[in-house]
Nucleic acid binder design. Structure first.
Lengths: 324, 324
DNA sequence: ATGAAAGCGCTAACAA
DNA sequence: TTGTTAGCGCTTTCAT
């Protein structure tokens, strides 16, 4: 079924058919009706690839993410996809397996096929991102890149609340278990924690980088104990859960001997035992907003600056009064 | 950067450039080297949309799923995406929000843009799927559709183990909390449970359909208690977790007063309190296999029958001896 | 082994 | 408002 078939069936020229689908207002209502009737009859649908060839707009977006199976991302992906659908865009989703090289290759191989791409928590350097950004409009989530629209989850606000929460509970000596070095969120987290700890006159140690996995958290348990603090903030919930497990193996109970706070507010943290005190990230909002920003920059051609979304603290069972 | 630029730069005709990229063996090694050099120099990449127009093969696949944020799906999506990448395919991912209509519309709107699509746990009727399958090669995951390649997770094997496990613990009266009516897995689950219960001479009640969510499980708690059984099998982990919460509100402890088994073996179940006994689904393998099947049917044009993957039981804390 | 030319399905000036 | 025509970037006969 092509535009020609519809043209034939409705007794008009192909360009008229084309117009009824891409600029309906430019065609006589009666003709339009006839064309639509024929199109429906034949089950015609415009071929987006062909359209892309002449318009240079594909109607597709790319969404590149470090790890689809990391429970932090699915709500974001879902929201982004839904928002894109509202605007009649299709979205390619690709998983980089946390590898910068894969990420770059993915962007390159998608570049020609999309009108823009969302880079979620990228592992690439800002320099590379800026460079690739000359080929494809980007929007970046969870990283600040100059001259690119960014959606930031302001982890700092939540982290400050977390540190305050710990101080209120009497903790004076904290440990931060960081994630991958390339993670912007991770850096922000470390920075905000250090700053707030200093303000409150608390001691603070950093451990890392570590893989952002449950095992990564478990492995850090030993060092956490050695450092002697009474409370820990980890890069994400998964690591917090792993850490709690690791601590248990070393004979430490949470929150009795040690308080633990995660980041992400995932299901796993909500259901774990003890349930996890965690920094809540506005992932769905971020996905939606990022698509909006991306489409604005695609259609309007400009860069729309940075949107920062607040984070909060969800206090549950994994934090308690400092021991002793 | 188009094929013309490369042709110009390397002093050959466009068709020769085309051949070096799509049928390298048809071009003189020396010429090929010259062309490749020029292409690399210019950073040329074939435009897949243009290629699609003449070859009628897009190099894209669709992956349609009921709910990206349902923790059951991300590992499957990840595996599918990775496998597609290995074969140099890009993947559109779309979320139907559990709605059959959305699913159909999504398939239709993608049809022209993909070489094939994966329907994961579809909510559409077999008839509609078969009908749509005439436009696009499909592979279906978690549903058996005649004449279409299917990847089934044989939930029956795991469910039989689950029922046996409960019987071994002394339970004689079971309840099954089902999910959405359109779910193939759900029907299989009900069937297998009933069959195995009959074999073992156990009583069995069905409750449903219910939304496959935590709240769906919580809501079912009251009816579960009324029915008077001592063990429950739910459609998925999320519902099991919700059910346990609901039971707790009604003053029932798990597993002391009631044993609960979920399905999916998700993170949430692993970390919940009590940790969940659950039927483990081979989701990653299913994703990988489904892509393989799909690509075979795309490239070879045939239907490759059905692959069934075994499921197992993971016994944890939410099941225990029957009370009394 | 390479070049020439037609065409994939659609859009976008330009004419009428 | 509608028809005409020339491509978009690539592949694929058919010649050479």
């Amino acid at each position: 079924m092509t535009i020609r078939d519809v043209a034939l069936a409705s007794g008009v020229h192909v360009s008229t058919v084309s117009r009824t689908f891409s600029a309906a207002h430019m065609v006589n209502p009666e003709t339009r009706a006839r064309v639509m009737a024929a199109a429906n009859e034949l089950g015609y649908r415009p071929n987006r690839a062909a359209r892309a060839l002449s318009t240079r707009r594909t109607g597709n977006l790319g969404l590149i993410v470090a790890d689809i199976a990391n429970p932090f991302f699915p709500p974001l992906i879902k929201a982004a996809q839904a928002q894109a659908r509202v605007r009649d865009y299709h979205v390619f989703i690709a998983d980089t397996d946390e590898q910068a090289r894969v990420e770059e290759e993915l962007v390159r191989s998608m570049a020609k096929q999309v009108d823009g791409a969302l880079l979620v928590a990228p592992r690439l350097s800002n320099r590379t991102i800026a460079e690739l950004g000359r080929d494809v409009p980007f929007t970046v989530v969870n990283r600040r890149v100059k001259n690119l629209p960014c959606v930031l989850m302001d982890v700092a606000s939540g982290v400050r609340q977390a540190i305050t929460h710990l101080a209120d509970l009497g903790h004076r000596d904290l440990t931060v278990v960081t994630g991958p070095r390339a993670s912007w969120t991770g850096q922000e987290l470390g920075r905000a924690a250090a700053e707030r700890a200093a303000e409150l006159g608390l001691g603070l140690h950093l451990i890392g980088p570590n893989p952002p996995t449950e095992d990564g958290g478990a492995t850090a348990a030993e060092e956490v104990v050695e450092l002697g603090g009474t409370a820990v903030l980890t890069h994400n919930d998964l690591m917090a859960i792993g850490l709690i497990r690791g601590l248990r193996h070393l004979g430490r109970q949470v929150p009795r001997d040690m308080s633990v706070i995660g980041v992400d507010n995932t299901d796993a943290g909500r259901h774990s035992d003890p349930s996890l005190t965690t920094v809540d990230m506005p992932t769905s909002a971020a996905g939606r907003t990022a698509i909006d920003l991306l489409l604005q920059s695609v259609t309007l051609g400009g860069t729309l600056g940075t949107v920062s979304l607040d984070t909060g603290l969800v206090a549950r069972e994994s934090t308690g009064p400092a021991p002793g």
